[in-house]
Design a protein around this nucleic acid. Structure first.
Lengths: 290, 290
DNA sequence: TTTCTAAATCGGTTTTATCGATTGATTTTA
DNA sequence: TAAAATCAATCGATAAAACCGATTTAGAAA
């Protein structure tokens, strides 16, 4: 049993397709096939069912994969730890961000990069769901999103700040002088909202439903910059957290009145994983900057 | 980085001598030297200091070893788990026992072996300290001893039963009719005790000191069967938990009066390690039999 | 039936883990 | 202080095994 074989196995488990897994691992299909077989021989139990030309995990494979993953993780955690000793001279930080919080990241990124220019960053935008999936698959070190309804035990949560839900309008509309606006007022306006995969949309739809309101949603769109373009025309309005349009010219945010009309920005990471020094430092910076 | 290399590294760390480590691993010294070097190259940091012909761990090596060990452990835990699926047909159980509790183990062992004859056992007798050291080095699955003063967070503790401290005498002495005996009475008798490494002795010495008693200890000995031989002559008495001499002919145990004159038998195992099914089953048996 | 697709297998090549022998450096012993 | 012993590093050679491309086998799809 070698880490190489465990990694091969985990990739095959993930894709449930030897040909694709082999290609993702940059090895030939025959090599993968042989290495899996060798692992199975050593463990004396099949890890995959070969039903025709399709493969599925066996119960043994399923149980074993947990330990295989942990073994691989521990080794790579140790590796990361040693990189850290090199005093933030090397290393890569992968951060997932929901679009609403991009300014939070960029602000911290600018400060951090000037102090530690050698650290590489990978910034992944996506919906909370997508990001959490990637976090669970060890593709991200940390994600930055608004609070989730369901909190999970293997996550570590850190609060960042709270931001009100707001009606976002062009600076040329008539409400720009208002300090706040009620949900029912909002529901009578022509709305363009992020599509239903976005947690902000889920959040606001729940609020509408609670108050028995039927908002006039004429557009759903899954790209925020495009959405903002539309809002700037003045023909539609949208609902976002106030932070989302920080630094956006030509747009104005009016907080929506009512309790529970705020959202809390959160850092979510894996509880058991080793947190690289570069990540720790970056997050500390992120929390002081914001 | 491969598990093979991590295992080599851990053995070298343990023995701090490449030649001996290589021999313990059944590989040549040159192979070990090369593999360690290769690992160091990959990690970009030396794991050992080479001071002359002597080696010591570097800070990096020390930090890394924790993760290396965990990686190796997780892989072997996964392996054990799969063996378990084979329905207790294979596997080895390593149990550490303090001498006082040997009857507890043998009783369960007899029942277990007749039901699962293919499971191998390794029974290690030793002092609590020795056994705990072995448990920490993954040489034992579980140990059976009396409660320790200091409980550690990475151990899992399960209580078995409570047994009184007792004066042990030959059946031919004059006290055999007594139901209990006080500590001061005991202190006036000629005593032969287990040597000070034994937790029972530490326990009873503390009790003597508390009561300002000066017992007449004429013999200290680190082998219980020999001690019992001496007691059978009738010339000395000793102090042990009552269970220790269960099944011993020609010996009689009189509980010592006073509160706190009992000890609790415990099962101690590592909290984070995977517990093999064979171990779980054996322990369950052990707890019902006693 | 034929075609297509994916895993398994086969034979050959490259890589690498391993060994024994030797070297170089340091500690121990005489 | 010189000689002997010890231990890690290095070298060259060999055996093991990881890997590849081509082919086979066997379901699935057309």
């Amino acid at each position: 049993m070698e880490l190489r074989q465990l990694k091969y196995f985990l990739k095959a488990k993930e894709l449930l397709n030897f040909t694709e897994a082999a290609s993702a691992l940059y090895i030939s299909q025959s090599t993968l096939s042989q290495q899996i077989k060798q692992l199975e021989d050593e463990l004396q139990v099949p890890l995959f069912n070969r039903i025709g030309k399709r493969i599925t995990l066996t119960e043994a494979g399923d149980l074993f994969s947990v330990y295989a993953q942990q073994s691989v993780n521990k080794a790579s955690d140790g590796f990361e730890l040693l990189k850290d000793l090199n005093n933030l001279e090397t290393g890569k930080v992968a951060i997932g961000v929901t679009y609403a919080l991009r300014h939070v990241v960029t602000k911290a990124l600018i400060v951090f990069s000037s102090e530690f220019p050698k650290i590489q960053f990978e910034i992944v935008f996506g919906t909370s769901q997508e990001l959490i999936h990637k976090l669970n698959h060890f593709e991200l070190d940390v994600i930055l999103t608004f609070e989730e309804i369901a909190s999970e035990a293997h996550f570590k949560y850190r609060e960042l700040f709270t931001s009100p839900m707001a009606l976002v309008t062009s600076t040329e509309t008539s409400f720009t002088n208002k300090n706040s606006i009620s949900l029912s007022e909002v529901s009578s306006l022509p709305l363009a909202l992020p599509s239903s995969g976005f947690s902000t949309t889920q959040f606001i739809n729940k609020a509408f439903k609670n108050d028995n309101l039927n908002p006039k949603v004429t557009i759903e769109i899954n790209d925020i910059p495009t959405l903002l373009e539309l809002i700037k025309t003045g023909k539609w309005h949208t609902i976002l957290t106030k932070t989302t349009i920080e630094n956006e010219k030509d747009l104005h945010a009016i907080p929506i009145s009512g309790k529970n009309m705020t959202r809390t920005a959160m850092l979510i990471s894996l509880k058991e994983a080793y947190e690289k020094k570069a990540v720790t430092t970056f997050l500390k910076m992120l929390m002081t900057v914001n």
